[in-house]
Design a protein around this nucleic acid. Structure first.
Length: 173
DNA sequence: CGACTTTGACCCGCGC
DNA sequence: GCGCGGGTCAAAGTCG
């Protein structure tokens, strides 16, 4: 885990958020489908946290393509694919994607204040799920960080948040 | 009245 | 080369 990811984890441990470790309760691979599973490396951690308004618990997957990519648990589609082409795809993704962090959060609201200011720029219906997916960008000037938020397809009380990139500004606003 | 969200259109990569 | 799925743009709308 690099510094950025550590900071991200710590951002949930302030006045309004308290971070505590969970047993591997939510680390089952049932939700790890498609691109999410391909984003997961060997370093997995599980957290829960509370806000003043809501009780939420999260599975937190810190991932980085750049470091020690471990072979993912193959979902059905990729498992059936030829090994060679699958490896090529992994190579391509490795090149393109720098850094991705996926949260699965039990919450009734999808806009959790994680200390950054987000500007919403898109909404899409995704094929796999009956729920829309929302796209946010960090509002800080010149900051390239994006996140996407979607609900779990078969358990709508979960919200999946995926962060992409690292903040290049120290202040949160 | 300014800042931010909404929402359909547009774009681009990929598989057939 | 066309259609589809996923990501982004930007004009219009909404909110404080």
């Amino acid at each position: 885990m690099n510094d950025e990811e550590t900071n991200l984890a710590r951002s949930f441990s302030d006045d309004t958020h308290s971070v505590f470790e969970l047993p591997d309760l939510y680390l089952s691979d049932e939700w790890m489908d498609d691109d999410l599973v391909s984003a997961v490396s060997g370093m997995n951690q599980s957290y829960g946290y509370q806000t003043s308004d809501h009780d939420v618990s999260s599975s937190v997957f810190f991932s980085g393509y750049s470091s020690s990519f471990s072979h993912p648990i193959s979902p059905s589609t990729k498992a059936s694919a030829a090994t060679a082409s699958a490896e090529n795809q992994i190579k391509k993704e490795k090149k393109k994607v720098k850094e991705r962090v996926a949260f699965k959060t039990r919450s009734d609201v999808e806009v959790l204040d994680d200390g950054f200011k987000w500007r919403k720029y898109g909404k899409k219906m995704v094929k796999n799920s009956p729920h829309p997916r929302n796209y946010y960008k960090c509002a800080a000037d010149g900051c390239p960080v994006k996140k996407r938020v979607e609900r779990d397809k078969d358990d709508p009380s979960f919200v999946i948040t995926t962060y992409e990139g690292s903040h290049n500004h120290s202040s949160m606003y």
